[in-house]
């Protein structure tokens, strides 16, 4: 028998070792997030998943679930903070949705829509970030990086290749390629790697795919990210109490 906590007034069951985010998604409750991925250890860097636990703000992806917690997530106060975070991410990079091939499949864009980010909010920094097109099959467009480190984690933990890393501090922090030349062509990355599948924005792209998915068939065309994320998350089976992802 599992314990429970309260999320926006709803009773949420959890298993020992689960975080608030994992338990919430498994029970069908969406908490906005960007750097969280169900297949990787929590990272806690984007802060989109910030909730109030017994009145104190914390990242729900790293917060262990405990019985009896009173958690707020879907409040105007927290969503206003999330909107600001999304605005800051847009301002820090060069995100030109109109000509970005990740449009419609991009988590940052989808969150912007879902959180109703209607204005830029901040002056854009327009950083000078080159494109790495050296690899014959893969394009790296650093302009769109949000430093979620999902590619770093995927390449290291799943692919065992350590293709990516982060360098620099503060506002100069940036994604790098672990090769002497700094070029993707001089790594052993491959199209089938996990690192190719996890980028939430349009940084790591298979070449020559572009806009081959028509508008209307893209990931977030039909359903908002808040609904799509629940489909993607390992779910608690109502009948067995087990995880639907594990039943497969």
């Amino acid at each position: 028998m599992s314990d429970t906590f309260h999320l926006d007034g709803a009773e949420v069951p959890f298993e020992s070792g689960q975080t608030v985010m994992q338990a919430a998604l498994a029970a069908g409750h969406y908490i906005p997030h960007l750097c969280y991925h169900p297949e990787f250890k929590p990272h806690g860097s984007c802060k989109l998943c910030t909730v109030k636990v017994n009145g104190r703000t914390t990242a729900s992806c790293t917060m262990p679930a405990e019985a009896g917690l009173e958690i707020e997530s879907e409040t105007e106060e927290l969503n206003a903070l999330r909107r600001t975070l999304v605005q800051m991410l847009f301002a820090e990079g060069n995100h030109f949705c109109p000509s970005c091939e990740k449009s419609g499949n991009c988590m940052l864009q989808a969150l912007g829509y879902d959180l109703e980010v209607h204005t830029a909010g901040f002056r854009h920094l327009y950083p000078d970030r080159p494109v790495d097109a050296s690899h014959p099959d893969i394009l790296l467009d650093f302009n769109r990086c949000i430093l979620c480190e999902l590619c770093v984690r995927a390449s290291s933990e799943v692919d065992g290749k350590n293709v990516f890393g982060l360098a620099g501090r503060g506002i100069t922090k940036h994604l790098i390629v672990n090769a002497e030349s700094g070029q993707l062509a001089d790594t052993d990355i491959a199209l089938a790697d996990k690192a190719m599948q996890v980028c939430p924005v349009g940084v790591i792209l298979p070449k020559r795919v572009g806009f081959s998915i028509p508008i209307g068939s893209r990931r977030y065309d039909e359903r908002p990210i808040s609904a799509q994320a629940l489909d993607d998350a390992p779910r608690q089976s109502a009948a067995s109490g087990g995880c639907t992802a594990c039943e497969e």
Binding site: P98, S99, E101, P130, V131, A133, L139, K207, R208, V209, G210, F211
Partner: peptide, 14 residues
């Protein structure tokens, strides 16, 4: 210049 060629039909229409 510097952009991938498959991006051009969508970008330049702006």
């Amino acid at each position: 210049q510097g952009r991938p060629f498959w991006e051009a039909p969508v970008m330049v229409q702006r």
